[in-house]
Design a protein around this nucleic acid. Structure first.
Length: 256
DNA sequence: CGGCATGTTTCGCC
DNA sequence: AGGCGAAACATGCC
């Protein structure tokens, strides 16, 4: 579930660490550089940013990049901003901590990356140059340019972080549902009005889901995805297809 | 027990 | 060269 929306929630929560010094910590060396703690200890956190699905902590030393994979979550000052991760464990087992950053001596870690499946990554000075337009800055013009020459399915192209950054599987299905676009359509085949509807769906629906708490709060919420009930818009049964190796949930009646 | 799961990276094939 | 799709990664959960 960690998509751009979750990264945004965690970025926001991480703001509490700005101005603090990193006094030490621990990492799982399978997901972070071995000298990570050494590199950041003694540095101050000067700001927090988000690029796509990555949370960036700027420091007086290197920038810390946090990538959450499929099951990672961030705990700031002992508080998980997103308690229940869909499809991930609801438990908060310290054995799954892949990173812990310590602040004031004697207090709990100011930041913990907890990730059972260990598909997340912790990086120093990550290269963020390859990311496409952020999901918060999508326009019809930018999408049109990005879709040119892309003959693969629009759903797959939306998930390509070099095209639009921050969209994950659930949000991609969600915006296609709202735009009324069949996820199998070749991206380059979308007409101007269809690209425009898609851009509007991304700009209008995602902020609503962000306010509701993340990518699992849409029309195609996890329970809907697994049960495929009648479409909320027109009553036609939703369909599940495998597309680009992932599950696509969509309505064959109103998505063309 | 078998199958499925939100994401990225890698690899082989056109 | 670069787009594309499949496989791999790792592990909890239903």
């Amino acid at each position: 579930m960690p998509e751009g929306l979750e990264a945004e929630i965690w970025r926001s929560a991480s703001a509490a660490t700005v101005g603090r010094v990193i006094t030490g910590g621990s990492v799982d060396e399978r997901v972070a550089p071995p000298d990570f703690i050494e590199q950041v200890t003694g540095e101050w956190i000067t700001g927090v940013r988000r690029v796509g699905k990555i949370v960036l902590l700027d420091t007086t030393g290197p920038t810390i990049g946090l990538h959450f994979g499929m099951t990672g979550r961030l705990i700031v000052d002992g508080d998980a901003p997103i308690e229940r991760l869909q499809y991930a464990s609801a438990r908060d087992d310290p054995a799954w901590d892949r990173l812990a950053l310590l602040g004031h001596e004697g207090s709990a870690p100011m930041l913990r990356l907890n990730d059972p499946r260990r598909l997340g990554r912790v990086r120093l000075d990550p290269d963020t140059s390859g990311f496409g337009v952020d999901f918060t800055a999508v326009t019809a013009r930018r999408l049109t340019a990005a879709f040119a020459g892309r003959g693969s399915a629009i759903k797959t192209v939306l998930l390509d972080q070099a095209v639009v950054s921050g969209l994950g599987n659930m949000c991609a299905d969600e915006v296609l549902w709202w735009a009324g676009t069949d996820p199998h359509r070749p991206a380059s085949s979308l007409r101007a009005d269809e690209v425009s509807r898609l851009a509007s769906a991304i700009r209008r629906r995602l902020p609503i889901m962000l306010r509701r708490g993340g990518s699992h709060t849409g029309v195609l919420a996890p329970t809907v995805r697994s049960a495929c009930p009648p479409c909320e818009r027109d009553g036609h049964p939703l369909r599940r297809d495998t597309l680009g190796g992932r599950t696509a949930v969509w309505c064959p009646k109103h998505q063309h």
